[in-house]
């Protein structure tokens, strides 16, 4: 793996964002809007706390963490789509760039996006609702890291599908992640799901992170078990999805799709 090729792609995307207000707005607009809407829902529910269970205070933390996962996935998929829209895929794949370097660059891009969004969301939550995400404590960092990796897994999977099926699969860049939201148990505990769905949710690393977050906030207990599950599942799925990406690149080269997808 060569650092200069990875930084080439990073610089390419940073050039893009430096000059494009809509792209910068896209990073911040939805998280901010989410935060405003859900923030007020939280306030409303908190005001009627006697009728509503106490876990409504988890909403803001859950929302911020969910958005980190979402931006992480978007960082990967949108970086690929930018190349596709620019008809630049041929230039990249006919260069010495390796698929691993391409993925590393998009993952680095996704970390930058998540960092920017996290600062804005955490700052806004503090300013508007006096909500401090740091109450999660030292567990926050491992939670975030695991959510970012889950975002990568969904992002690489989605990118592979777009590469394989072309621009008509573009909509997956925005919709795929929401398929995982119900089984990520973002705003409710896993136990509210039907038993059969709980089994599926247990295989989702994000569900363990959100369960862990609730464990910390409600009981102040250690979420080590949840974290261990999330790390193991993320490890397994990341290896699987990267292998799937390599397989897709090979399939696309065999069927001439890599050239056609960028046309």
């Amino acid at each position: 793996m060569k650092l200069h090729r990875i930084t080439a792609l990073l610089v390419r995307h940073l050039y893009l964002y430096r000059r494009s207000l809509p792209r910068i707005m896209e990073i911040f607009y939805w998280p901010f809007l989410d935060l405003v809407i859900w923030g007020f829902i939280t306030l409303y529910l908190a005001r009627y706390q006697s009728q509503v269970p106490g876990f409504v205070t988890f909403f803001l933390g859950a929302l911020i963490l969910w958005d980190m996962l979402f931006r992480s996935q978007q960082g990967i998929t949108i970086a690929f789509l930018e190349e596709l829209w620019a008809r630049n895929l041929m230039n990249l794949f006919a260069s010495p760039l390796k698929p691993s370097e391409f993925l590393t660059a998009t993952m680095a891009m996704s970390v930058m996006k998540v960092t920017a969004v996290s600062i804005v969301m955490a700052g806004s939550a503090l300013l508007f609702y006096s909500y401090n995400i740091l109450i999660i404590g030292a567990w926050l960092m491992p939670f975030v890291l695991n959510l970012v990796i889950t975002g990568w897994i969904i992002g690489v999977f989605t990118t592979s599908l777009i590469m394989r099926f072309g621009q008509e699969a573009e909509v997956l860049a925005w919709s795929m992640v929401f398929l995982f939201q119900p089984i990520s148990c973002v705003f409710y505990p896993l136990e509210v799901l039907p038993t059969w769905l709980q089994v599926i949710a247990w295989a989702n690393p994000a569900a363990h992170i959100f369960e862990g977050m609730r464990t910390v906030l409600s009981a102040g207990a250690s979420p080590l078990g949840n974290l261990a599950w999330a790390v193991c599942l993320n490890g397994v799925f990341l290896v699987m999805v990267v292998a799937w990406f390599y397989r897709t690149v090979a399939y696309c080269k065999e069927h001439g799709l890599l050239v056609r997808v960028g046309e």
């Binding site: 610089v11 930018e82 230039n91």
Partner: peptide
């Protein structure tokens, strides 16, 4: 591929980047 390159009327380069920026990215890539 480090020693090979190509040009075609059928390809493009990132539209939002300037000519100079595009060339800088290629220089880094290689």
């Amino acid at each position: 591929l480090q020693q090979v390159n190509f040009s075609s009327t059928y390809i493009s380069m990132p539209q939002a980047l300037t000519v100079e920026e595009n060339l800088c990215v290629v220089a880094r890539l290689y």
